[in-house]
């Protein structure tokens, strides 16, 4: 079914532009046309369908669900909801405070917030179409594991000590029985309303991510066409232990969302970069970004931010090592 995009790229690059399939430019451009057309088509169709299904799910419902849960289940569910709930990173502060003032432990809230940028419907779609279901499943499992483990650890070290004082007070108040949970009454959604929500959502997400797709695929295409065959494989193909932390560190200043980085992943893997190193690089690019961390400063003290940052970097490095070690068995 996805073959038509290859045909489209064949036609545009080799016929219309009459480029040689063996040339660097031809190969790079083919990669670009095929991936951009495929990703755009998939995004438009699938965001709409998914939005239609989850129109009635929102952060308020997630909060109400999580606030009554047992802890052990809480981390898992926090992470699951982080993956499936529609939510924009500009809302992470109000979500954090909303969860906190409902008395949800910091670790469970963070399981939600850490998983959210790593896994979302756009990322999963791209992975499925570019890298196949096995890799996608692996990515989802690892993303959730990082969220769950991160949340657990934060509660173990009693991270709530290092919240900003007003957030800590809200948590205290909620624990003593005065949880604040305002909700605007929502009626059951009609099909018409679901359609409107899905339409708005599709336009909104698409207008936000299209440029990332272009940038990401552009980089991927450049790698694909211009990095000499075998170069990456020769230097980094053995999964040398230092290459993983190096990839994580390299990912920090590079700030992208999952949409932009996945086409780069595809290209890196095709060039022979080991899976673990690729995963580590991409997760670090997506989740460990300075702009987001600066935002969190509004509700957390520096100390907690530093711990969180170190925790993420360590987690991505370990993930990378494990997957490089497992590659021969996959």
């Amino acid at each position: 079914m996805l073959g038509i995009f290859t045909d489209l790229a064949d036609w545009v690059v080799y016929q219309l532009l009459a480029l040689d399939a063996g040339s660097k430019l031809g190969s790079a451009l083919h990669f670009f046309v095929e991936d951009v057309s495929k990703i755009f088509a998939l995004l438009l169709v699938m965001i709409y369908v998914i939005a239609l299904l989850r129109a009635s799910l929102n952060v308020e419902k997630v909060r109400d669900y999580l606030s009554g849960r047992h802890r052990a289940l809480g981390y898992l569910m926090g992470s699951v909801f982080g993956a499936i709930t529609p939510f924009c990173s500009c809302s992470s502060i109000p979500v954090f405070l909303g969860f906190t003032s409902a008395g949800i432990p910091v670790g469970i809230t963070m399981a939600f917030l850490l998983t959210s940028p790593l896994i979302n419907e756009v990322a999963v779609l791209l992975l499925l179409s570019l890298l196949g279901w096995k890799f996608t499943l692996l990515y989802i499992l690892v993303g959730m594991l990082v969220g769950i483990a991160g949340g657990l650890l934060l509660d173990l070290i009693k991270a709530e000590r290092w919240l900003q004082s007003f957030a800590a007070e809200a948590l205290q108040r909620a624990r003593s029985g005065n949880a604040v949970t305002t909700t605007i009454d929502a009626e059951a959604l009609s099909l018409q309303q679901r359609h409107e929500f899905a339409r708005d959502e599709t336009l909104d997400i698409f207008s936000r991510v299209w440029k990332w797709v272009i940038i990401g695929v552009g980089l991927g295409a450049a790698l694909h066409g211009f990095v000499p065959e075998g170069w990456i494989e020769n230097y980094l193909g053995q999964g040398q232990w230092w290459s993983v932390p190096a990839a994580v560190v390299l990912g920090i200043p590079l700030y992208s969302n999952a949409t932009g980085v996945i086409p780069v992943m595809e290209s890196l893997i095709l060039k022979g970069l080991p899976i673990g190193t690729t995963l580590a690089f991409c997760m670090s690019t997506v989740a460990a970004s300075f702009p987001e961390f600066i935002l969190l400063k509004q509700v957390m003290q520096w100390r907690l931010l530093a711990i969180l940052f170190a925790l993420l970097l360590t987690a991505f490095t370990i993930v990378g090592w494990i997957f490089n070690g497992l590659t021969p068995f996959l």
């Binding site: 809302s91 502060i93 109000p94 979500v95 909303g98 003032s101 007003f166 604040v180 909700t183 509004q298």
Partner: peptide, 13 residues
């Protein structure tokens, strides 16, 4: 301000 959002119980903006 985050405090204002919290006082109205707002979670999505």
């Amino acid at each position: 301000s985050p405090q204002a959002m919290m006082s109205y119980g707002v979670m999505s903006t």
